[in-house]
Design a protein around this nucleic acid. Structure first.
Lengths: 121, 121
DNA sequence: CCTATACTTCGCCAAGTAACGAAGTAAAGG
DNA sequence: CCTTTACTTCGTTACTTGGCGAAGTATAGG
């Protein structure tokens, strides 16, 4: 029951659902999620922590960056089933689609910065 | 998104999850749910209203009684998928099993009262 | 080292929520 | 009618939660 409620509570806030879905097409670091959502770093950090403790996202530290990705959707765990359900239920949400475009921009920005680095060297 | 959040919020409270699962084996009237949960009528009434507005339970009035039952689990709606997921995730929960026994008692009590009526006539 | 960047922790505040009991509505039975 | 029973609505209280900014930690780069 505890883990079930951790999941439903994690999914019961719109901001948190949006944060989770930004990871639909691959991992992002916290600052990228922050930029997409347009909220304070402390706020987003807390949201990601809640999603992580619910088992819905996995985290990976690399240097200064915390990367987040959706937990394996194919598993048999409670969280995996919840993810499958949520992804299906939110398939056509406008807010999610809007965020997806913003995620795309944030990824491109990364690449531009990378190429800027190459040009500078 | 609104309906998704209505569902996750409805499922994010332990009491409400217990209330929903008391209906697993068929409909009950509010006073039976009240007895199983051991909470104030006003509290349980509100919980059932939230479950109903989320589309997770259906209601039916008969005389003085409000009967509740789980929404059709076989449908293609968001709520139906949520129900399938919740039922699967909570299959082995102790709290739910305990409530199921209490539900059983409450149903028997009904039958005793019914038979008492028959004997009295 | 010192600074900058990425993130976390803490304390605060406003808004939301679960519980209760009291009072109100509605239906059934004297 | 009047009472009882089943339920709902309302107001209150205690607690939780989402947001923020300020301060703290950690890592990379001069």
């Amino acid at each position: 029951m505890k883990s079930f409620l951790a999941i439903t509570r994690a999914l019961s806030d719109e901001t948190r659902v949006r944060a989770l879905l930004t990871l639909r097409d691959g991992e992002l670091c916290l600052c990228q999620v922050i930029e997409v959502l347009g909220l304070a770093p402390s706020t987003v950090s807390k949201h990601m922590d809640i999603l992580h403790r619910a088992g819905l996202v996995e985290r990976r530290k690399e240097g200064r960056w915390q990367y987040f990705r959706m937990a394996g959707k194919a598993g048999g765990t409670e969280a995996a089933a919840a993810l499958r359900w949520a992804l299906e239920a939110l398939r056509n949400e406008k807010a999610i689609a809007d965020d997806a475009r913003a995620v795309c921009c944030v990824r491109k920005k990364d690449r531009q910065e990378v190429s800027a680095c190459y040009r500078a060297s």
